[in-house]
Write a protein that binds this DNA or RNA. Structure first.
Lengths: 318, 318
DNA sequence: TTAGATGGTGGAACGCGTTTCAGAGCAAGA
DNA sequence: TCTTGCTCTGAAACGCGTTCCACCATCTAA
């Protein structure tokens, strides 16, 4: 494979001139430009991006850390990220962690080793202060409320407030035993939601109903199975993912329970499935969030921390 | 940031020795090895992977082309790919194409520009012969039947035969008007399925029912809406994705149709949702396919073309 | 006429780890 | 004693594009 020096020799110019032609630098005479282009065409010259990366000190690659891609939440987030990547002529390395710390560490090391220019962390187990230390090697952005943090950018929605709003809404509609379903118990978003729930329970005492480890449609059945074991059952559920909400709704129907009469359901995300199944949900602009995350990692954002608005979409499950 | 030469100077050795220490080469005296390690620790030395890539001529990065990540089929495929990537100390660049040729071209160019060492193409619009020409720049693997092709590896299932089997199964069960739902009309897999359907129709003439552009759960409703417009309706559907099958099943229930009495459904993939909703389905080892694709792209496969077995899982929708 | 752009060009250094090769020291086998 | 053959070490070349800097030629404004 020909390199820039070969081209220079064949075209009878210096490597600098070839480089200039490649990068559309103005100070090249038409004559030489043409000569270089002709040679490049003849030998089918292709720049070696690795060499460009080494020389420029950046890879034009962003790392994206997600626990799993299968989930529609992260799928949509990646969708937004991918869109911005295309627009900015970047590509991204996907790191699926399954919430294993080693995988997250790998991503941080890639940043340290200059394999990637920046890192978008969509969800993580390694503690934020540890992550912060890697900010010196490249920009890091997280999709959770990291406001107050100076070195890490963040794009997020207010999960505390949205939970509070949702709980108040259900209360107002007359539900007395409200529970919630969430994915993993730990993590920033879960923390804020739990905080809101605790606060709600403090204000309006009732039995606590929390169902964890719910990610997919089929987990809806699991939740209903757990509920059927309870003597005192919830009459409303806040479900932090529409697909799980859809699964719960389906399980309810299979068990001949009436929704919302016997069980009210509020989903989150406003995924297409929520519309199709007429599920009341909190719309979270996930794809936009992905896009904003990308803007941040490129340093194109004005504020370090950005909160996105979410709003309730009232449909038939409350 | 310190580089290998700085380390060498500080430790009083040559760069070669430092390189040897980094790469665990045996021919280094304990004394020097220790000296080098001490210095590396002191200055927090980190190898520059870009430099390694340039030097070795490979990036340890694989490109993965998918039309969209949101879909559980590709989600699972990526899951398998990610698993093998971890095991082989590789990472991958995800290229979401939305079936745009420019995106696919970008992926091919990355290979040409040595940004990636190989390419896994899960679905594509650019024709295979065009893709083939890029094989000279790195290994390319596709997840469709490319047998007979010398330069491109492939991992696939026999969609023709599975469709034939499914159609025969429905016929045997007494269904008379069998149709099918598919994602996009074009593409290799769709082609083989169409071929099988045509052949079936030739053997057992009936009205043709084909529903295209069905990818997600919510598209199930769309299919049922289309069917409700027909005067002559199908009594059985082959649905090339379990999530769509689940959506159709849900739409059927909402319309108070009995499944399988009024409408039989066979899904594909055997996703968890199929189990939960008791959907008869063809199990396709998607994650395994992802893993095999990765093996192939690393050149670790014995045969260029690999067919994976699939089998029918009989449940309640037929 | 002169100082100061502006256009055009190339040599050489730079980014940084790997690898080849030559050479030295030393021990085991012939 | 001589030849192999291993262990250990480092200089230098290599992979390849970018960029700094020096330099020449024109041309313009003072």
């Amino acid at each position: 494979m020909a390199n820039i020096r070969d081209i220079a020799k064949m075209a009878g110019v210096s490597v600098t001139t070839v480089s200039r032609v490649i990068n559309d630098h103005p100070y090249v005479s038409e004559e030489k430009r043409k000569a270089v282009i002709d040679v490049m065409r003849k030998v089918d010259y292709q720049v070696n991006r690795t060499a460009v990366s080494l020389s420029q000190g950046k890879s034009h690659l962003i790392g994206v850390v997600v626990p799993f891609v299968k989930h529609p939440y992260f799928g949509l987030l990646i969708e937004g990220i991918a869109k911005q990547a295309v627009e900015n002529h970047y590509h991204f390395v996907l790191i699926q962690t399954n919430y294993e710390k080693e995988r997250e560490q790998e991503a941080l090391d890639m940043l340290k080793h200059k394999q990637i220019d920046g890192l978008i962390i969509c969800s993580h187990r390694i503690e934020l202060p540890t992550i912060e230390a890697y900010q010196q090697y490249g920009r890091i952005v997280v999709s959770e409320n990291a406001a107050g943090n100076k070195s890490i950018d963040s794009v997020f929605v207010d999960h505390y407030q949205s939970f509070m709003d949702a709980l108040a809404y259900l209360k107002h509609k007359g539900y007395k035993r409200i529970g919630y379903c969430i994915g993993r118990e730990s993590g920033s978003n879960s923390y804020f939601r739990q905080l809101a729930y605790k606060e709600f329970l403090r204000q309006y005492p009732q039995k606590e109903f929390v169902f964890t480890e719910n990610y997919y449609f089929e987990d809806g059945q699991k939740v209903m199975d757990e509920i059927s074991e309870l003597t005192e059952k919830p009459d409303a559920l806040l479900v932090t993912s529409d697909v799980v909400a859809a699964g719960i709704l389906t399980a309810c129907k299979n068990a001949h329970m009436r929704v919302p009469k016997d069980m009210a359901i509020i989903g989150f995300d406003n995924q297409p499935i929520a519309k199709m199944m007429d599920i009341t949900t909190f719309e979270i602009p996930i794809a936009t969030m992905g896009e904003r995350l990308f803007q941040h990692v490129l340093g194109k954002a004005i504020n370090r921390h950005e909160e996105l608005a979410i709003n309730l979409i009232e449909r038939g499950t409350v």
